[in-house]
Write a protein that binds this DNA or RNA. Structure first.
Lengths: 340, 340
DNA sequence: AACTATGTTGGAAGCGCTTTCAGGACGTTG
DNA sequence: CAACGTCCTGAAAGCGCTTCCAACATAGTT
């Protein structure tokens, strides 16, 4: 490290200029009581003259806290994590905490996420989105007393904010059933990797339960999985719609996939909702524009709530490792209708 | 601050256990040479046994660097800043730097942004998006030798990554002119506040130039401004389309606003593009879904490039305060056509 | 007038790390 | 066998801040 000239004033400079000890400067800066008015004024004057601003790094070391909250999440490239981050940012805006963002998408995903989880000294608290931290790290976090809240993920030892994916799957499917559909297909995510929360799988379960509860048989050829993308969903939908007995309705595990279904239908000149009903999941912004019927989950709210829980824990109220379940709403728009 | 029990090992613990001095532990940890193999092994063993991880806060203080890059930006709630952040995240992923996010939307916008800019010790470098830092802060940054790169903003003393908004406005307008339109309206942003870069205003200039170059008169009633939102743009478009002599084409300063125009047209049963052409700006994701003709700016690329420039500066190559202009492309989709 | 409660202050010890510097252990060379 | 060079190593001095603690005034009590 080369010694770059550092013109910025340190606490000692202020103390020297004001003719007091550094302890007194610190008291003035942090507004601790017991400083004579005259002294305070001299110190404030020196601070102003030197444009002194305390080094947060030094404060961090001394106070053993960083005022930083780490947010670990995969797929910042997708719409729904972004929405959660917005919620987090909002909740943190009125707190003294800054936000450090760790995207875990790139090749070294686990690597990097865990480096952060591990390097506990770097953050005062952690928000983990759509990712399940390994037990090993959870143990460390507990040992170091670093609060951690999960969003869209669960772990026995950690508080979390989630939705009931099974219920969501049931909600969507039941709605289609109530409209009168019986040939209902499902397009879900690929089996998740061990560190991701299996929400799509749970939605499948909800789908199956809804069908079962009405005695509608589950057809294997109607249940498909593919990586979460419009493109893949589109080609899956294309296959489904070319079946000898095509579905009259499709439930997609995400809005993005639902949009892929709409594209496939459009390409095949199958009118939606006249000949095909489509329902998505999430209610991302584009869904309202596309007029997509969907199951709304409060993405923004999940981030906000998770951050709130973390702030509480940071404030000393030790939150129990409880699971908070956010509600889901059916949002009916223009892509669903009874079959003819 | 209460003294919370800190079970995590410090460098002294490792040194004690390995029977060496802390300097040696530091050497092993940082892989500095000159440590006997046997000693190194003992230290490594101790590190493993104690699950030692160096405190980055302490390292920061000692090394006078934080390995954190601050990203200051307004309106994280909108699509385009997000896209830029993605680019930044991508560029930073392969670097040792972490990313601290500062949204400047809330009430205390300036307040908070400048607190960061000011608290220089907190970050090694700064990326400022769509915001112009006040001269005062720029001076401080220079004094402290903190590199700073602007994205979508300009400042004489700072390097920046921008687009040519005037050219973009011209590009869009000229395209409509070439299609044969003569009654072309423009919907732009509200006059920006002093800290925002006036890109919408520049696009207006481009619009005017294009018209002038073809000798088409500029009609005041065709040039409108409103806050950047679908809702507002929709009502503005509604007014425009009800004019005695309504425009045959609308150029919106952003895709979001263009979508508002499409909604207004739909509500009035005015077919697009048959009776009305619409062109946007940005090419956000939803634009491709909506089939919107637009001027694409490389949002992701702007973030990536800005981060790259910053990393270069951080690596010691002192970047000149130069302006890098990213290209714009006309993306023709389904919302434009010659007038009848 | 002696003494105590109260209010202010600065010295110094940490916070946990990096790095300089000097010293010790060896092996080499003339 | 003395003189040197080469390697390793640890003590100690920072990095810039907070805070404990002791020292000192000063004012208020008896």
């Amino acid at each position: 490290m080369e010694a770059v000239p550092r013109p910025s004033a340190r606490i000692a400079d202020v103390a020297a200029r004001a003719g007091v000890g550094i302890a007194t400067v610190s008291r003035v800066v942090n507004d601790r009581g017991n400083v004579a008015a005259a002294t305070r004024d001299r110190v404030l004057e020196a601070i102003r003259a030197l444009e002194y601003r305390p080094s947060s790094v030094a404060q961090n070391l001394s106070l053993r806290r960083t005022l930083v909250i780490g947010v670990v999440l995969p797929f910042l490239t997708e719409a729904s994590p972004i929405e959660r981050v917005r919620g987090i940012v909002t909740a943190l805006a009125s707190s003294p905490y800054d936000l450090a963002l760790y995207d875990v998408e790139s090749a070294d995903r686990q690597q990097r996420a865990f480096r952060l989880l591990a390097d506990a000294h770097r953050t005062d608290g952690l928000l983990v989105v759509s990712l399940i931290p390994p037990d090993e790290e959870v143990r460390r976090l507990r040992a170091e007393a670093i609060p951690c809240v999960l969003i869209d993920a669960r772990h026995d030892a950690l508080p979390s904010v989630v939705i009931d994916d099974v219920a969501g799957g049931e909600l969507a499917t039941r709605y289609l059933l109530e409209l009168g559909h019986r040939r209902i297909a499902f397009i879900g995510d690929k089996p998740a990797d061990p560190f991701r929360f299996q929400s799509s799988r749970d939605r499948t379960t909800g789908y199956e339960r809804a069908l079962e509860s009405l005695g509608v048989p589950i057809r294997a050829e109607y249940v498909r999985e593919g990586t979460q993308s419009r493109h893949v969903a589109r080609s899956i939908a294309d296959e489904l719609l070319r079946l000898p007995e095509p579905p009259t309705a499709v439930f997609a595990a995400s809005d993005v996939q639902a949009l892929g279904v709409l594209e496939a239908a459009r390409a095949l000149r199958i009118d939606v909702p006249e000949r095909l009903s489509v329902i998505g999941f999430d209610d991302i912004e584009i869904a309202s524009y596309a007029g997509l019927t969907t199951v709304r989950q409060r993405l923004f709210e999940s981030g906000r709530r998770g951050a709130e829980l973390l702030l509480q824990a940071l404030a000393g109220e030790p939150a129990p490792a409880r699971v908070e379940t956010l509600p889901l709403d059916l949002v009916v728009r223009g892509t669903t209708r009874p079959p003819r």
